[in-house]
Every structure is written in C-alpha cells, then in structure tokens.
C-alpha cells in the first residue's frame, strides 16, 4: 500500500491496542453505555455485508445500520470543513442517498466502506461548499460484473484496520496537522497562518506522520 521508509525504526503498530477500543470523541451518549454499544457498531465486515444487502435487496435496515454509524461522522467532517449545521445536515443526507444509489459501484477489494463514504462526502463538500466541479480519474476497466476476490477483500480490510491503529498512534501534533489538512479545508500555508507554525514545520510534521503511517503499513 505505502512504500519506503527506514527499516531501523521500531514497528509502532504491533503493540497497539485493538481497533475497537479506539476512543469515540464527543458523543452524546452517557460514558458508561459506550463500550458495548461501540463494539457492536464498529464492524467493517458487517458494513460490507450491509452494502451488498443494499445493492441486491434495497435493504432498508442494513442502510439504517450504516446511516447510524456514518451519518454523524460525515456531518462532523462537513462542519469542520466550514458548513453550518443546516447545510451539513442536508449534504449528509445527500451523501447517504448517494451511497444507496451507488451501492453497486462499491468494491470492497479496492476500498473500505469508510474510505468509500469519505470520497463521496469529500466530493459533495467540493460541490456544495466550494461550488466547483470535481474532476475524477478515469475508472479502470474491470471484468464484466466480476465479484471481487474474497482474499483481496480480507486483506484490504486488514490493511484498513492496521492503518486505523497507526493513525490512532500518531503523536498528537502530527495527528492534529494531518486532520487539519484533510478536514480543515486549508492549504499548508493557511494552516501556517492559523497555527502560527512556520510552513517548514507543518510540512515536515505532515511528512513525519506519513512516514510513520508508511512504516506501520509495511
């Protein structure tokens, strides 16, 4: 997935806690109710099944499961990118409706459900907030209606979890800048203005974060 990086660095991912205990920030639920609820909710394998139920059977309860988990995240992402609550709510509904309509295009051997939803939300953001068209790369040609190889699906799922752990383990300063770069709708020089950090520091922290992620993905 990622390439390069210094092999002498210790592997940060190997001694990290499992993914499902990742903390949920700022939820409205009482703290005690969380561990059980979270475990049930965080389940990438189930999401893949739910995607195919939506594709094959227009299954509303499968859609409701995905909605419950992802819609509040998409909304948070859009609000961090500068949408007010009303616009974010409206765009999130459109993102989720797009997921429903495009379910047949989702390929679990190429992206996790979370990544796929992220790309839909990002495109909606550019369209609605920045009023620009979003040029997308040409699609690769795939075999006629070919079912993805289960081994590929599984290894992509494992890599996604590995990446989730690696991101959770980033030092706070690197993590913060990477989040700003992805969610703040800011260029590096705008981040420099906002944080007061010199541009060089921002670039090198982001580079360090990417190096760490690459290393963890080896």
């Amino acid at each position: 997935m990622f390439n390069v990086v210094d092999p002498s660095e210790p592997n940060v991912a190997s001694y990290l806690p499992a993914l499902h205990v990742r903390k949920e920030v700022k939820t409205e639920l009482p703290v005690k109710a969380q561990p059980v609820a979270m475990k049930k909710k965080y389940d990438p394998g189930a999401w893949i099944t739910e995607m195919s139920l939506i594709r094959d059977h227009k299954d509303q309860s499968a859609f409701a499961e995905l909605f419950q988990y992802f819609a509040p995240r998409v909304k948070a992402f859009l609000m961090r990118s500068g949408a007010d609550a009303t616009l974010a709510e409206e765009c999130t509904q459109e993102v989720m409706a797009t997921l429903w309509h495009k379910a047949h295009l989702f390929d679990p051997s190429r992206a996790s459900v979370a990544t796929w939803i992220f790309t839909i939300a990002r495109n909606r953001k550019i369209d609605a907030l920045r009023k620009q068209r979003r040029p997308e790369p040409e699609d690769l040609e795939w075999g006629p209606e070919q079912e993805p190889d289960q081994e590929d699906v599984l290894s992509l799922q494992q890599e996604s979890e590995q990446l989730g752990r690696a991101i959770a383990a980033l030092p706070a300063k690197q993590r913060e800048l990477i989040e700003k770069a992805y969610f703040g709708d800011l260029s590096h020089s705008e981040i420099a203005e906002q944080t007061g950090l010199p541009l060089g520091t921002i670039k090198s922290r982001i580079r360090l974060a990417l190096d760490r992620l690459r290393h963890a993905m080896k």
Binding site: E159, F183, L213
Partner: peptide
C-alpha cells in the same frame, strides 16, 4: 483516500436531526 476514511471514522461525530 484511505487515510481520509480512517480519519473520518476516528474523529468527532455530530448527531443528526
């Protein structure tokens, strides 16, 4: 893109209406 997906999953949530 998968970094974006992982970040979106692992950050804040805002309740829907």
């Amino acid at each position: 893109d998968s970094v974006g997906g992982a970040l979106m999953e692992d950050t804040q949530t805002v309740p829907m209406a």
